[in-house]
């Protein structure tokens, strides 16, 4: 098998995640889809690292994880406060620039 298949998988996962972001209304699911996209990227980085024979790709993936962790913390906090005020986690409900 050619390791390029990993890249195809990565692309597939990324596309599925992106489509999910566009389709789902529940903010938590949307957020999960974003995580899926990030993970797909990480997979690609790891495969690139293998392809080039150095560890820089893995470093980037590592940083991506850190950033993703930070993003999850803030994002979930936003969802919680959103839910507190609107009693709903739907992103479509937040379509006006006011509460």
């Amino acid at each position: 098998m050619n390791p390029v298949n990993y890249l195809y998988l990565s692309a597939l996962l990324f596309t599925i995640g992106a489509t999910g972001v566009l389709i789902r209304r529940n903010a938590i699911v949307v957020f999960m889809c974003i995580e899926l996209m990030l993970n797909a990227c990480n997979l690609a980085f790891v495969v690139f690292s293998r392809m080039h024979g150095n560890l820089d790709g893995q470093i980037i993936a590592f940083f991506t994880m850190v950033v993703a962790a930070a993003e999850v913390v803030v994002g979930l906090a936003i969802i919680v406060s959103l839910f507190r005020t609107r009693h709903s986690a739907s992103v479509d409900d937040a379509s006006l620039m006011k509460l």
Partner: peptide
């Protein structure tokens, strides 16, 4: 994906 990382030599990740 974690398994795939391991398979690709990214043990730490």
């Amino acid at each position: 994906l974690a398994v795939f990382y391991l398979a690709n030599g990214a043990y730490f990740l």
